[in-house]
């Protein structure tokens, strides 16, 4: 692939093909980011839209300079000073990290079992394992409310079995949010793991076994290291969206379950503080920049193949 070679110019015909998608992403993907950064630097105002513009070319260059001098980091200062934000970041990272780990622990045996099933069953099994992902995210999260509530099915069953006397407080906790994330994002973990395990050469395992390795040793020294790429990809695909999640903490978490996506939402919809919401978005992206770049690099490498 000429990935490292000279970049060439597009021909006129190619430009015709690429013009529409390029214009679209410039307008609806690149421009939004520029605007988020811009608004995050402006002052909140009680107007519509509720912020003071930073750059307004209507007043000419003089106006521009005057505006530039007002360039405010106020929204960010708010971020740094406000414990609410710091807590949301830490709590987002913790919840997403724990959920990613549990997701890996749940998904690995599942992926392994599918990858070692009879060859003709594998596509069907993986199809059924991924199918719930296409159904409504909101509804899948909602389904857990009926299970986790104090008067929900799990508590009801545990009490009927005599295992507990009073309902376990599961609903509206950080634990419920972790369960929701693991459930919702399991297919993201499952697919790369399955691909990494299924693609392995079975003769490597046989060779290890022939040389006297126990099944556990074969797993630890052959299967697990060979599936490293799948583990990294799956962990990124779960962790990245989980950090910015809004629906799950909002529906399953308690009012004290802070996550940055939820804080951004409340800043925007409840407090109408657009600069604060934008600053939260920039900070969220900064937090995710490294994992996203890691993922993008993997995608581009895949793409160049």
């Amino acid at each position: 692939m000429p990935e490292s070679g000279k970049r060439r110019k597009l021909t006129r015909g190619e430009m015709l093909v690429i013009a529409a998608p390029y214009a679209w992403i410039a307008l609806f993907f690149l421009a939004p980011f520029a605007l988020i950064v811009k608004i995050s630097l402006s002052q909140p105002a009680q107007t519509r839209p509720p912020y003071e513009p930073v750059l307004d070319l209507a007043n000419g260059v003089a106006g521009l300079f005057e505006k530039l001098s007002q360039f405010g980091l106020g929204a960010y200062r708010g971020l740094a000073e406000d414990n609410l934000y710091l807590d949301s970041y830490l709590s987002s990272l913790t919840i997403a990290g724990v959920a990613t780990l549990i997701c890996l622990i749940v998904a690995y045996p599942f992926a392994l079992a599918i990858a070692r099933a009879p060859r003709r069953l594998r596509p069907i099994l993986i199809g059924f394992a991924v199918a719930p992902f296409w159904t409504s995210f909101l509804i899948r999260v909602y389904a857990w409310i009926a299970l986790l509530k104090d008067e929900g099915l799990i508590n009801h069953a545990l009490m009927a079995l005599g295992l507990i006397d009073a309902p376990l407080p599961m609903f509206a906790t950080s634990g419920a949010v972790v369960v929701g994330i693991v459930y919702s994002y399991l297919p993201f973990m499952l697919l790369p793991l399955y691909a990494a395990i299924e693609g392995q050469d079975a003769s490597l395992r046989e060779a290890a076994a022939d040389l006297g390795a126990t099944p556990l040793q074969v797993f630890l020294h052959v299967t697990l290291p060979l599936s490293r790429r799948g583990i990294v990809a799956g962990a990124l695909l779960v962790f990245i969206p989980a950090v910015g999640e809004f629906v799950i903490p909002d529906l399953l978490g308690g009012s004290d379950t802070l996550m940055i996506g939820r804080t951004l939402w409340n800043d925007f919809f409840a407090n109408r503080d657009w600069p604060a919401a934008s600053a939260a978005a920039v900070a969220l992206l900064a937090l995710l920049l490294f994992p996203i770049l890691l993922y993008e690099r993997a995608q581009l490498r895949e793409d160049a193949r």
């Binding site: 421009a31 605007l35 990245i240 996506g261 951004l264 996203i292």
Partner: peptide
């Protein structure tokens, strides 16, 4: 790289960020 990156990025971008950005546009 810019084109491909912009195409793939929304796959992993938090929805709250995408939504806010589009609204601002």
């Amino acid at each position: 790289a810019l084109f491909a990156g912009s195409i793939y990025a929304p796959l992993v971008m938090p929805e709250v960020v995408l939504g806010l950005g589009l609204l601002l546009v």
